[in-house]
Design a protein around this nucleic acid. Structure first.
Length: 769
RNA sequence: GCCGGGAUGGCGGAAUUGGUAGACGCGCAGGACUCAAAAUCCUGUAUGGGCAACUAUGUGCGGGUUCGAUUCCCGCUCCCGGCACCA
């Protein structure tokens, strides 16, 4: 390694900081470009080598856009509420606030060492009361819009974290964070009615430019199905059983019905004779967790209620069963079973020897007419469980009063001028075994007065989930120091929507959907100017360990970016992380690859330091195609081939001396990739100012067109020779040259030429017989 | 099971409106420089045959379309990610 990366990287980082070149500007006459990465959770482990992948890629884009005259907003902040910090606080007896400060300090230092062009003047932190004041304010907007409600419901309870989890946080039956066992518990929870926005969240995907796989995943998660509700009368009972079906047209094949064990009519449907058996079954089913239910996929269980329903289309009498393969949480919690048509119904019918009949389908409309069914739409999306019984989150800014607002259960919003409701200091952060938040133990905080009537009232002690602060941070970056509003309307209009948002696929159904929803609610209430927050969404692949497995602390295969920066330099790390593979795909980490890019940087440095204008020659036709390729690849997210184009450029130049202007162009284009070295070389050749202040080169078409290319000559589709000719040469010219080749003659001799396929610039193929 | 993505040298990968497969990098081999080493530079490097020119084979497997297929079509295998009794 020839150049001293530690010295020059520090030097240019200081220059950038003092010159403020990366700050987004207000009130300038330039097109805006809002470029966003998912802000990190500042964990105690420090920056993961995966973080720089996304950050560097968008840094390259941001830098190019600035060169091109855009007013670029590329901000950074901290998504700092959450369990790992709280758990660490419990373990060490320290304050989460203090731990967060330490962790963000580490992350900030690490990110700065990478030379990322973030606008640090807009740094936000979700745990800052000045920030979460607005998270609370927005929650109250949800509340006022009737979108936040408290409901007793079976929630997923992590037995290890002692916390309720959203469905999204339960991964294959265990807690996403700690891997602990999850069971069902009834609990009063704040819920957010995201399902009211299901249709718009689905429809508006048509209006945005997301990678198709991201749209698909969101569509599947929302899970719209169109069908019908049909009422089935029950013998000897007033109430009817309403089912949801996507296939009312199979109504003639119905041979029985099933209701979920939690269905409200189970008790009434059960005859005395069947009661013991049904009650036992219901008890067993409720004791089962979701995993246990899932594990029994093969064998269906269930029990006959003793009641019979009437098929409204045929007036046939059909038995009503209770079985846990029907879920209370979807549709109406009751189905009409068509074993001939539905696999699950068939498995159940065979298990319990129920009839399977082969009846013809009728049309959808005819079926509705015959049964009195109603067209409906169902979604798999569920409402968002918004309460956490933990300390390290935003307090939910509500007070419960015995005298006021009975229609909301006595819940009164804390007035705006009393926000934020600040997290009080507590002695211990352990969650209580009763399932209450640690905040519930602080009487002085819990007991307050009602903002409406002034009588004694109690604060809500639940806190918000970690998804709250991250659902709107992109809005705060726009006006981060505003005390009057989360952001001014004027600035929101200037910057929204985000032009490019990059993040991991793991956030597609959680953060991405939540934040789209959150923004839509704010839009509907007139607080933001656009309905969709992100114009374009991209994703990056994971950085894996060198053996292709996930990096993890327990396996000890985690790569520390600090070490790489120290040993090889930030520019090497930047370049390698872009070079290692296609941006969207997972790639294994390799130290060997890193050595390769460092050698390339050394070569550039040697070239610049040995460069002497007096020997220069015009190398435009050599250089320009490469620079054009790099420039185009940036926009296409093909950073790996952009780097390789750079390597080819300098391979082609080793013993040639380009002009000052050409060298400057090369350094400007190198800037986004290896900004420290680009500036160092810029200075080395006697230029002043920063590379960042230079305009992006435009490319002269005349230098990009090649006058002579190498073309393969094929015989019957097999390459037999290579000829040099103009890309637009006519067939006669091409044929004369091609047939003159010795190796072509060898094959053509004595054979008949059946056909010649000539695609100028591409191929010359002779077909023989 | 369903949805999405993938499979190319010793390794990471490149190439698609179908047009010389293996760019670029790593590794490896040989050479130059050096007392020597490091660094650097040059040459070679898919596999088999051949001194070479060249030649046969080759992009997970089996078929097909085409002058020509890594690329398009049909049928499989395996791997990764997501969802999963959603009626």
């Amino acid at each position: 390694m020839s150049y001293n990366h530690q010295e020059i990287e520090k030097k240019w980082q200081e220059r950038w900081e003092s010159s403020c070149v990366f700050q987004a500007q207000e009130g300038v006459d330039k097109p805006k470009f809002y470029c966003l990465i998912e802000f990190p959770y500042p964990s105690g482990a420090g920056l993961h080598i995966g973080h720089p992948r996304s950050y560097t890629a968008l840094d390259v884009l941001s830098r190019k856009k600035r060169h091109q005259g855009y007013n670029v907003l590329y901000p950074i902040g901290w998504d700092a509420f959450g369990l790992p910090t709280e758990n660490y606080a419990i373990k060490t007896g320290r304050k989460p606030q203090e731990i967060t400060r330490e962790n963000t300090d580490t992350f900030r230092r690490q990110l700065k060492s990478l030379g990322l062009s973030f606008d640090w003047s807009r740094e936000v932190n979700t745990t800052d009361p000045a920030y979460y004041k607005w998270t609370q304010w927005m929650f109250l907007e949800f509340f006022k819009a009737g979108l936040a409600y408290k409901a007793k419901m079976a929630i997923n309870w992590c037995t290890s974290c002692k916390i309720g989890l959203a469905n999204e946080e339960v991964v294959s039956g265990v807690c996403e964070r700690c891997g602990g066992r999850v069971e069902k518990r009834d609990k009063e929870q704040w819920m957010i009615a995201i399902t009211k926005y299901a249709e718009r969240l689905l429809q508006d995907l048509e209006t945005v430019d997301y990678l198709e796989k991201i749209k698909t995943q969101q569509r599947n998660w929302i899970g719209k199905s169109e069908g019908a509700e049909i009422d089935f009368p029950v013998e000897g009972m007033e109430q009817k059983i309403t089912v949801f079906t996507t296939r009312p047209d199979t109504i003639f094949g119905v041979t029985y019905m099933v209701v979920a064990p939690e269905h409200p009519l189970v008790g009434r449907l059960t005859t005395d004779f069947q009661r013991t058996e049904v009650e036992q079954y219901v008890r067993q089913a409720s004791a089962k967790t979701d995993i246990e239910r899932g594990n029994e996929e093969k064998t269906k269980t269930g029990v006959f209620t003793g009641s019979f329903a009437i098929n409204p289309a045929t007036q046939e009498k059909i038995p009503v069963w209770v079985a846990d393969y029907v879920l209370m949480g979807y549709g109406t919690g009751a189905i009409m079973a068509v074993p001939q048509h539905d696999e699950r119904d068939r498995a159940f019918a065979m298990q319990f020897s129920l009839p399977i009949v082969d009846k013809p389908f009728v049309s959808f409309d005819e079926a509705l007419e015959r049964t009195g069914g109603r067209k409906t739409v169902q979604y798999k999306l569920r409402d968002w469980v918004f309460s956490r019984q933990r300390y390290w989150g935003e307090p939910i800014p509500l007070v419960q009063c015995k005298h006021c607002s009975p229609e909301t259960g006595g819940w009164i919003p804390v007035p705006e001028n009393q926000l934020p409701v600040v997290l009080p200091e507590v002695e211990k952060y352990e969650p209580t075994d009763t399932g209450e938040s640690p905040l519930a133990t602080i009487d002085a905080w819990v007991n307050t007065t009602c903002p409406m009537c002034g009588n004694p009232a109690k604060r809500e002690t639940d806190t918000m989930p970690n998804w709250a602060g991250s659902s709107w941070y992109f809005l705060r970056y726009i006006d981060p120091h505003n005390n009057e509003a989360f952001a001014s309307q004027e600035k929101l209009k200037q910057w929204m929507p985000v032009d490019l948002y990059n993040g991991g696929m793991e956030h597609t159904t959680l953060h991405l959907l939540y934040s789209r929803f959150w923004n839509k609610v704010l839009f509907d209430r007139g607080h933001v100017p656009v309905s969709e927050p992100y114009t374009r969404r991209h994703s990056h692949g994971l950085v894996l360990a060198s053996d292709g497995t996930k990096m993890s602390k327990s396996k000890g295969n985690v790569v520390n970016p600090d070490e790489i920066v120290r040993e090889y330099g930030a520019d090497s790390l930047r370049l390698y992380i872009l070079f290692m593979g296609p941006f969207e795909e997972p790639v294994p980490w390799s130290l060997n690859g890193l050595i390769g890019v460092r050698r390339f940087l050394d070569k550039v440095e040697r070239y610049a330091s040995g460069w002497n204008e007096t020997n220069a020659q015009d190398l435009g036709t050599v250089i320009e195609p490469h620079l054009k390729k790099v420039s185009d690849d940036i926009d296409a997210f093909k950073f790996n081939t952009a780097v390789s184009a750079f390597m080819r450029l300098f391979n082609d130049l080793t013993d040639k001396v380009m002009t000052r202007d050409q060298l400057k162009r090369c350094l400007i284009v190198l800037g986004p990739f290896a900004p420290h070295l680009a500036n160092e070389c810029w200075e080395m050749i006697g230029e002043t100012g920063l590379v960042e202040e230079q305009p992006w080169p435009t490319f002269d078409e005349a230098l990009l067109v090649q006058t002579s290319i190498e073309m393969a000559v094929q015989i019957n589709g097999k390459a037999r020779a290579t000829i040099a000719l103009a890309p637009d040469a006519d067939q006669q010219t091409a044929q004369t040259i091609a047939l003159a080749q010795a190796n072509v003659q060898k094959y053509v001799e004595g054979k008949e030429i059946v056909k010649i396929v000539y695609v100028p610039g591409r191929i010359f193929n002779i077909v023989l017989k």
